[in-house]
Design a protein around this nucleic acid. Structure first.
Lengths: 210, 210
DNA sequence: ATCAAGTCTGTAACTTGTTCTAGATTAGCG
DNA sequence: CGCTAATCTAGAACAAGTTACAGACTTGAT
């Protein structure tokens, strides 16, 4: 009754065969492609299945819900972005500058496929407890990207708080932009504003309290 | 074809009759009640209609989608909270302290009905462009609450940025808590962390840049 | 009181996410 | 090769949001 072997879609527990790996990839590609034009609503499970050349039941075996599918799509894209960003690290001198630059670069990448971004981010924020592990993976990836940009080896707890707040801002600002309630300029300002927290929590500088 | 007179559910354009006002109220109450136990999924349009004693079509005339309904429910609750908070203003001396205290108070209020909070917040972040005006109303209400707590009469653009970032953090932190990925303690830390931005952007103190 | 326009009701239909089932295919193993 | 368990396919069925529609009820103006 309880889904045990349902979420075996990550290269973990039972190693997927080659054809299964290929299926999984076809599904993720179809998902991203449908999302890229049409956004969240255009990613319809029957259409994904057909475009990927698998049966509906198979799609559900690989990704137990539409949300799982889109969150996995986001994992995919983030991983891609992480490696891309690593190749050309940000140029700023301050950690806060570098983080802001990195996030704005990521933001511009998303701008190129706003519908895809819409689908992924909506799925991410709509995900409920059942998708927590997958969402957590995305969160860890984002954290890794930010820490990379900071160049900080051993972040203090305070710095980790700042990074969490930056992530909060990043997601939420993205949503307001995607739903047309904030301009790109405003997103930029918000990101630059929140990145100042990094200076504030740098080990040498600033933030004493109580 | 295009819905013009569909969204006339706010006491604006054509003033609602008494019975209509009563219907609207019954619907919102039913929505909140169903949400309070069961969360987002338990707010089923047919059930709301039945509990409110109206036909399904009527429910949709008042609130053109489930998302609209839940966002309106949130407006309702926020308004309530705003007046409650005004009665007992926060005690801290610093603006940042007062804001953090206010938000944590609001947070504890939501904790009392976590399912209701879940339904409202999920609706809010899932809302797409079609619900922008309503979501914006919620956002303005939140801003008003924060500015009240700051006690700032004429906020600078920098301060408004800080307030926006605080709102981002507030929403996103709420989501991580609701989906079980962050503890209450962590939410508290995040809120206190982001509230430090207020000190940073106070007109006399800190934040010069370029 | 009567009429027209607008609103509400009850109900069925349609859409898309999700589940289920019976039979075909594949993978691993002797 | 031949067997068995797992996987995959095709398609039906179900659930909940949304839309459509015919007829009853309200409202407001005359």
């Amino acid at each position: 009754m309880t889904a045990d072997n349902r979420a075996d879609h990550r290269p973990a527990s039972p190693p997927l065969t080659e054809r299964q790996e290929a299926r999984r990839r076809r599904i993720l590609n179809a998902s991203a492609q449908l999302a890229a034009r049409g956004g969240f609503d255009a990613v319809q499970m029957r259409e994904v299945a057909e475009a990927a050349g698998v049966a509906l039941g198979t799609l559900y075996r690989y990704f137990p819900s539409k949300i799982h599918l889109l969150v996995a799509t986001m994992q995919d894209q983030l991983q891609h972005m992480h490696t891309t960003l690593r190749k050309r690290p940000p140029a700023g001198t301050d950690p806060s500058e570098r983080v802001a630059e990195t996030l704005m670069r990521a933001f511009r990448a998303l701008q190129r496929e706003p519908q895809l971004a819409d689908a992924m981010v909506r799925a991410l924020t709509f995900a409920d407890r059942g998708v927590s592990p997958e969402v957590d993976t995305v969160s860890r990836l984002t954290t890794a990207i930010i820490l990379d940009a900071m160049g900080t080896e051993h972040p203090t707890p305070e710095q980790l708080s700042a990074v969490r707040v930056i992530e909060h801002t990043w997601h939420s600002a993205l949503i307001t932009w995607l739903s047309g309630r904030a301009s790109i300029a405003q997103v930029k300002i918000d990101i630059e504003t929140v990145c100042r927290l990094i200076d504030l929590t740098a080990p040498e500088a600033g933030g004493r309290r109580d």
